[in-house]
């Protein structure tokens, strides 16, 4: 874990410098008491997944796979090498659609994306893949930025699909881990008709 902290420290320090904010301690930004990064609220989580880095990276890199563990997303269609259209679930069978663009891509290490200018929803995400110590697999850390409630779109966003963004991010990463380690996502339901998303 110490090793991971060091990686994070370097990354966080660089980003903090770029943003012109002072780094107060070694903890990742998402664990700060004021979980803000400029306009966007930050949520995120790290998990250690007992699979090789390249395998995890390539599954995530194909955005059409994301709905298999991000249950708020109905589907993602690639519209170009870096562009995709995301359709997220909303109450009473409604959906919200927006465009995202891949903003950062380091093979087997890092994927960043962001909603495009003028999108109905303002969101960004960043996931890193690092070797865990002692052959324990890969540390996957995801951070999702979203527009906090305020303004019509923010309220809609919070209400529709990110009411509990922290819990949702945690659940999504745990589902990703289950799927990558075991090939399936655990359910306590005994009947297909009862299988609900959380």
């Amino acid at each position: 874990m110490a090793q991971e902290t060091h990686h994070d420290t370097a990354d966080e320090a660089q980003r903090a410098d770029a943003a012109g904010t002072a780094q107060r301690d070694d903890a990742p930004k998402r664990t700060r008491r004021d979980d803000k990064d400029g306009d966007l609220a930050i949520v995120g989580r790290s998990v250690t997944i007992n699979r090789p880095r390249a395998e995890l990276f390539s599954y995530w890199r194909d955005f059409t796979n994301l709905p298999s563990f991000m249950h708020a997303i109905e589907r993602i269609e690639m519209t170009g090498d870096r562009r995709s259209t995301w359709t997220v679930k909303a109450p009473v069978g409604q959906t919200v659609t927006f465009e995202t663009e891949v903003t950062g891509l380091v093979e087997n290490e890092e994927i960043g994306w962001c909603s495009v200018e003028g999108s109905q929803i303002k969101t960004s995400g960043h996931v890193t893949f690092k070797d865990a110590p002692a052959g324990r697999g890969t540390v996957v850390s995801a951070e999702i930025g979203y527009e906090p409630p305020g303004g019509d779109v923010g309220r809609l966003l919070a209400k529709l699909f990110m009411a509990e963004p922290n819990i949702q991010a945690r659940h999504e990463l745990k589902r990703f881990k289950m799927l990558m380690e075991t090939g399936e996502i655990a359910t306590g339901a005994n009947h297909k008709s009862d299988r609900g998303d959380d």
């Binding site: 819990i167 945690r170 659940h171 745990k174 589902r175 881990k177 289950m178 380690e181 075991t182 996502i185 655990a186 359910t187 306590g188 959380d198």
Partner: peptide, 11 residues
């Protein structure tokens, strides 16, 4: 085990 308790039951 990390993977058999459904995520929504882990909270």
């Amino acid at each position: 085990c990390d993977n058999t308790n459904p995520v929504e039951k882990q909270d």
